[in-house]
Amino acid sequence: MLTEEERKEIRDELKRHAHKQAACVEALKIVQRHRGWVSDEVRDIAELLEMTPDELDGVATFYSQIFRRPAGKHVIRVCDGVSCWVMGYDIVRRHLKVRLGIDAGETSSDGQFTLLPISCLGACNIAPAMMIDDELYGNLTFEKIDGILEKYR
């Protein structure tokens, strides 16, 4: 069930669009912003957009940044773009794996972190880079990573 707040935000978004379906990605993002992911709310969102769940989910599952599975409180996206790869992506990823005890695509058992490899973050000049939630971190080193993770614990 969508909350009244989510509904309102989606309705506001709909006002901007001549075609309801055009708002569907934004609507999914609204719900994801509130919950970290989109589960069976797909039904309710679809209804607001006059789409079927099948239609909305066809769109939702296409895009990489709509999560149809639960994600941790913080989503760590490690850039595996080519510049970061050249600059040591592998080491960064392995370090994060050790520190968090999870593999790529997994969520830590305390529900704090989800680790996702992600295509180029557009931060090639500060490679290797990662993004935690909305924050971008570049020129990563082991010490730096440890320090950053501390902030989120």
Binding site: R16, Q21, A22, C24, V25, V59, F62, Y63, S64, Q65
Partner: peptide
């Protein structure tokens, strides 16, 4: 003028896929 923030996928940058993305379809 509106700002539309994508939901990820390299192919969205291809101009015609971008149109489909804007229409709320699969890109």
């Amino acid at each position: 003028l509106y700002l539309h923030v994508s939901a990820g996928r390299y192919i969205c940058g291809e101009e015609t896929a971008l149109l489909n993305a804007m229409e709320g379809r699969r890109a």
